[in-house]
């Protein structure tokens, strides 16, 4: 048996969270030492009951909340005050309510906001916006005001607003919520077509199984499980312990899950 040498230095992990703990100013502790590594190009679902600390964790990834203890690295770059602008460019968060995310008068201006804040101007900015909108199939809606779009279209534009920043990792908060089945599938097609790392917070377990080969269960402020999505969903004891429930009639064993 040969002992393999030190691993060749590949690209640094997209997300590297070490011993992250956080308590809110009112004393409520939300996270108790989180360790999580997401490699480049992976699609990972972050599962867990309400109040498990999922949103708190997400807000640490781009430095909105500052870690009480532990560290967060994004593609090798520590999340601290010095790197904040670059970290926020690398971590694109798509929030749950597109009306919160889309705050500019037209779709084009909204998608341009991030790259323009990073200093892009003129033709380059235009090209960046067009590319991002084309990737979500919303190129022909550039000059429309966001509130004239359907909910599914707004969600796709919200994805484009962060894609325009060419992020290292795309973080989605409940991407399938409030979508009709067709919009839900269209968004899945878009997410599969992207070559970025994806971390997806969701209660929609079939969606997690469809899109993410790997899942992480966050419960009570700790990582309770980390493994193949299909394995986790088939472990009914684990699921029950963390208030995770499959929709009626859905059997995760019956579908061919994507391989990581």
């Amino acid at each position: 048996m040969t002992v393999s040498g030190p691993m060749p230095p590949g690209p640094p992990a997209s997300l590297d969270v070490r011993g992250l703990a956080y308590a809110y100013p009112d004393g409520h502790q939300a996270l108790f030492g989180i360790d999580l590594t997401v490699d480049r190009g992976e699609r990972v679902a972050l599962l867990g009951p309400n109040g498990a600390g999922k949103t708190t964790l997400v807000l640490h990834l781009n430095g909105i909340l500052a870690a009480g203890a532990g560290t967060v690295h994004v593609a090798g770059l520590p999340v601290d005050a010095e790197n904040m602008a670059e970290v926020r460019r690398r971590v694109g968060i798509v929030f749950q309510d597109p009306d919160d995310q889309l705050f500019m008068p037209t779709v084009r201006e909204d998608v341009a906001f991030g790259p323009a804040a990073a200093g892009l101007r003129g033709a380059q900015l235009r090209a960046r916006v067009d590319t991002a909108l084309d990737r979500v199939g919303m190129g022909s809606f550039a000059d429309r005001p966001p509130h004239h779009l359907s909910f599914g279209q707004r969600r796709r534009v919200a994805v484009a607003t962060v894609l325009a920043m060419e992020p290292e990792v795309l973080v989605l908060d409940e991407p399938s919520s409030n979508l009709d089945p067709a919009s839900r599938r269209e968004l899945a097609d878009i997410l599969r077509s992207l070559d970025v790392t994806v971390l997806m917070v969701t209660h929609d377990l079939p969606y997690a199984l469809e899109l993410c080969p790997r899942s992480v269960v966050l419960s009570g402020g700790v990582i309770a499980a980390d493994g193949r999505t299909q394995d986790l969903l088939c472990d009914s004891e684990l699921m029950g312990r963390h208030r995770l429930e499959l929709p009626f009639g859905f059997d995760p064993r019956s579908v061919a899950a994507p391989v990581g």
Binding site: A116, A117, G122
Partner: peptide, 20 residues
Amino acid sequence: RVHLAMVSRGYTGTMPVLHE
């Protein structure tokens, strides 16, 4: 929440120039 979304996309207090 809107402010949070803005800060996440690099807002630092001024709107970037989009129209020249």
